[in-house]
């Protein structure tokens, strides 16, 4: 019999991604060294790394990163917690759902960065306006996905818990929240990048320190090496956050 199965499985190829990266960065470096790429428009990877190292060791890049991390952590945590509580309430109480559905569908589409000037008017140019913008951007997707996850909590589990005489609070803590956990973590992955976008945008509008301000300042003096070093930092921040959430998923969702 002629073999006619197979061919559609995705198999792990461990060396392909690093090899691809090496080829790409190698070509970039070769282009820069040979002078084909204008260093003002795109400095070579070695130069960017050197700049990044120098700025971290001597310059105040560390202060910028520290500021940005604080804003991101605060904004993301506040937004996530608020989204979690509102999403949970909308999933559990009909009146919360009625109000929440209408409010979210009208407010969700607003690009949150458009509200930053208003927040600056209300809260001043300092930290609170930036943190609020990030928190708001994280809040909506979290609320929507937690509400959907609570809706999707298997009814047979709830009925089972009721048959063993568990009270409402125990059912929320022991059945509803654990079954919503995978959706929450999946949403956290998305909101981290939303948070990063808003962080950089807010810092570009008005901040002395912060990775967004750093990139903007580098751009203004056409220092493309520093600019790319800043972009590299953001990319690393996002990758690290993703790795943290992946580790959380591995430990918390072992049962899957």
């Amino acid at each position: 019999m002629r073999f006619r199965g197979g061919g559609f499985e995705i198999t792990p190829k461990r060396w392909f991604a690093p090899a691809f990266a090496v080829v790409l960065v190698g070509a970039w470096q070769a282009g820069s060294t040979s002078g084909r790429i204008d260093p003002l428009l795109l400095p070579g990877p070695v130069d960017v790394l050197e700049t990044l190292y120098r700025e971290l060791a001597q310059g105040d890049l560390a202060i910028h990163i520290g500021q940005s991390l604080t804003r991101l952590l605060l904004g993301w945590s506040i937004g996530s917690l608020a989204g979690l509580s509102v999403g949970l309430s909308m999933g559990l109480w009909s009146w919360c759902r009625a109000i929440g559905d209408a409010a979210i569908s009208s407010l969700y589409p607003i690009p949150k960065i458009a509200l930053l000037p208003l927040f600056i008017l209300w809260l001043g140019i300092g930290e609170s306006s930036k943190i609020t913008t990030i928190a708001l951007g994280v809040f909506f997707p979290m609320a929507v996905s937690v509400c959907a996850a609570v809706d999707a909590a298997p009814r047979p589990f709830i009925r089972m818990a009721q048959s063993f005489g568990l009270d409402r609070l125990s059912i929320i803590v022991k059945i509803v929240l654990p079954s919503a956990l995978p959706a929450m973590l999946a949403c956290a992955r998305i909101t981290v990048s939303t948070g990063l976008v808003l962080l950089v945008a807010a810092e570009m509008i008005g901040a002395q320190y912060g990775i967004g301000a750093y990139i903007l300042a580098a751009g203004n003096i056409m220092d493309s090496e520093k600019l790319l070093a800043g972009v590299l930092v953001i990319s690393l921040l996002g990758t690290c956050a993703g790795a943290v959430i992946a580790a959380l998923e591995r430990t918390l969702l072992r049962w899957r």
């Binding site: 047979p156 589990f157 089972m160 818990a161 048959s163 063993f164 005489g165 568990l166 009270d167 125990s170 022991k174 059945i175 654990p178 079954s179 956990l181 969702l253 049962w255 899957r256």
Partner: peptide, 27 residues
């Protein structure tokens, strides 16, 4: 006093066997 046994057992996937049995004893 009145206890159910369900069709597909109704086990919580995030709890171990002991954890699932413990649900009947909690509270």
């Amino acid at each position: 006093p009145f206890t159910f046994v369900f069709q597909d057992a109704g086990l919580l996937p995030w709890r171990t066997v002991a954890g699932n049995v413990a649900l009947a004893l909690e509270g």
